[in-house]
Amino acid sequence: MKKLAAMLAGVALAMPIAAAAQDAAGTTKKDSYRFLIVPKVVHPWFDKVNDGAQMAAAALKAQTGAEIEIVYSAPQTADVVQQVQIVESAISTRPDGIAIDLLDPSGNRGSLEAAQSQDIPLVIFDSVPPEGMQIPYIGSDFCEQAKIAARRLVEVLGGEGEVAIMMGVPTAPNHSIRAECHREVFAEHPGIKVVAEGIDNDSIETAQQQAAAIMQANPGLKGWVASDAAGPIGIGQAIVEAGKQGQVTLVGLDNLPEMLDMIRSGVADSSSASQPELQGYWSVMLLWAQATGAPVPGYLDTGNAFLTKDNLGN
């Protein structure tokens, strides 16, 4: 009886300590974690995000010993309905966290609320959270990225000439922010005239078709900027097909292999690149931190890089 009393006393004494350890921020532990990465669409840019996510998973596994599974689930087309369906289906599997690049914050709100109601940690990458929702988000300064590209085009053109803007998915906030910031820069230069804007819906093929048509309709066009990663690749193809290399300047966006090849071959002047690997890496890190109960920053800027023939190398 005395032994039992002593045991109970011991348990009672230990409980507050255990509870404190459990409650302390960042101390919740599990043997395995499953994080879901939901990009806008199947696209090479998002493969780099996935690469970064896998790197973070490997780093966490090495440090903590926990199994970290990254489930990469992408809509086949850039369609918010498909993306919502994927997120809602994924919630059924009770993942330890979801990182998502929103196609449309308003359209995605319902599925994000469903995840929050089930206490599933969320991170938004390459996009911004729906208005009023407190979700950590990761990305580069989209506006600054676009302004770097637009300013470069103005500089190459000597402050004069007709230019065009390729928008990506107009409902995607990062794409629309970039398009708007391109316009702001061009508006500061009276000699620059925006004669056309295309919508490529993040498709290289559509970008190529749009760019070809716009260059046909505007033979005096001198330069292009884009608002998504697929856009400049399609534009570059259209420039080559139209035989306008050297006559039309392309300042691209992001660092897909085709974009880098176009800079090296001289089809494109340069590119203002976000860093998708970093976005994937920090998405997983922030999800993991939330899963352990640790506080995380509300915003994490992964920065931009300006790529030219000189700094790219071979």
Binding site: T77, A78, D79, V80, V81, V84, D104, S106, G107, R109, G110, T171
Partner: peptide, 10 residues
């Protein structure tokens, strides 16, 4: 969705 998306029906 709570929004009228142009992609509805695609």
């Amino acid at each position: 969705l709570g929004t009228a998306q142009p992609s509805i029906g695609q």
